[in-house]
Design a protein around this nucleic acid. Structure first.
Length: 405
DNA sequence: TATGATT
């Protein structure tokens, strides 16, 4: 049998002619092997030159890693052998806990005392605001996954601390990927400019239909963690995407992420993992927006007062004006403005309206006071999916664009 | 429905 905190190792750079029986002697010297499997192609059964290895003892895995990883090269290979925890082992974050619903007056030491009975603690930190006040939560890192799990089993929901609004939350800390999803959710919220008015206009077009579908999906996933819900919504959008466009979550802010609802069953894993592919898509496309969202934009990014009344001077300098097409029919100037506020100082936001019918022509312009904001907005919003369509966002064509001087 | 609306 293997230990509860055993580590699954990934073994790379092994010759394709070596099978389990050949590899066993190499690794057995560090301890009893629980499982050793050469990785083969799902369809062809072809040896892929790597394997998974789990020792019965955690210690054996650590020894093997130290002794072998990049330390020797097997015959016929031109790179040294790889021996490291498999990706599934979660980069060591499997022993770190997030603790929520602490009292504001609890110090690191108080938290440490609470968790000490469950194992050796490597790290224990109460999260604090810049002014030093406790955020009512903490990270606690044990030396092993098993210890962390034991603490969850005994402490999660076990009591309500003085000054906390609900019972103690003890869960594994977010992985890197979950953090990414959380950040995206924040960005999506910033960009979720769809006021309730939009839905109440009564127009049942593709856009409102898509909104309803998404909200139904959110409702259906209520039993999952909020993260998984976001992931599910993103998956839905992912399905509609092919090409290099960017998509995001154009819905009213989803269920707030509360620590108490975030610890959930195994059901959460699957949609999350499925969403990872999409995340990479996102993280590649949104860095600029991440940066901006964390800046104190509500103060800075507002209309300059003189221009609020008199909207005559609509265009910004060259390179500061963007053209947006495929806006939802019911989008007004103010919604267009809100959508682009996160990217900089908006000088004007104008939806084009058919003069005869007063209907939006589904395109418009946004002007910033500097070209960088315009570029950032283009990067982040071009391809932003709304309903069945994706926004087209690009620099406004100069007036003389097709005039060959 | 496609680039700041009759210069």
């Amino acid at each position: 049998m293997k230990e509860a905190d055993a580590i699954k190792l990934f073994i790379g750079q092994i010759p394709r002619n070596l099978e389990e029986k050949d590899l066993k002697p190499i690794f057995e010297q560090f301890g009893k092997i629980y499982e050793l499997t050469v990785i083969k192609d799902k369809y062809t059964g072809m040896h892929k030159g790597c394997a998974f290895l789990t020792y019965c003892a955690r210690e054996s895995a650590l020894k093997a890693q130290t002794a072998l990883h990049e330390q020797k090269t097997l015959p016929g290979m031109n790179r040294p052998i790889q021996v490291k925890p498999a990706d599934s082992e979660g980069r060591g974050e499997d022993r770190k806990l997030f603790v929520g619903m602490l009292g504001k007056q609890q110090e690191d030491d108080d938290v440490r005392k609470m968790f000490e009975p469950f194992g050796r603690i490597d790290e224990c930190t109460v999260l604090r605001a810049p002014d030093g006040t406790s955020k009512g939560c903490a990270f606690v890192k044990f030396q092993s996954h098993a210890e962390a799990q034991a603490a969850i089993n005994s402490l999660h929901g076990s009591r309500t601390l003085p000054g906390a609004s609900s019972s103690l939350v003890v869960k594994f800390a977010d992985t890197e990927k979950e953090r990414g999803l959380r950040r995206m959710q924040q960005v999506a919220s910033q960009l979720a400019v769809f006021s309730p008015m939009t839905l109440n206009l009564g127009a049942y077009n593709a856009y409102t239909q898509a909104l309803v579908q998404q909200q139904t999906l959110v409702a259906q996933s209520a039993y999952l963690s909020p993260i998984a819900t976001v992931a599910a919504v993103q998956m839905q959008q992912m399905a509609a995407l092919n090409g290099n466009g960017i998509i995001a979550t154009p819905i009213t802010p989803i269920t707030p992420i509360t620590p108490s609802s975030a610890q959930s069953s195994a059901g959460v894993l699957d949609p999350l993992q499925q969403a990872y592919a999409g995340m990479q898509h996102y993280t590649a496309a949104y860095p600029a927006a991440y940066g901006l969202v964390s800046t104190p934009f509500p103060q800075q990014h507002t209309l300059v007062p003189q221009q609020q009344q008199q909207q005559q001077q609509r265009e910004g300098p060259e390179g500061c004006n963007i053209f947006i097409y495929h806006l939802p029919q019911e989008f007004t100037d103010s919604e267009l403005l809100q959508m682009f506020l996160p990217f900089g100082n908006v000088i004007s936001a104008k939806v084009f309206v058919d003069r005869a019918t007063n209907q939006s022509k589904c395109f418009g312009f946004v002007s910033f006071d500097n070209p960088t904001s315009a570029q950032t907005a283009i990067q982040a919003m071009n391809g932003f999916q709304i309903g069945m369509k994706r926004l087209k966002v690009q620099l406004k064509r100069p007036k003389d664009a097709n005039r060959p001087y």
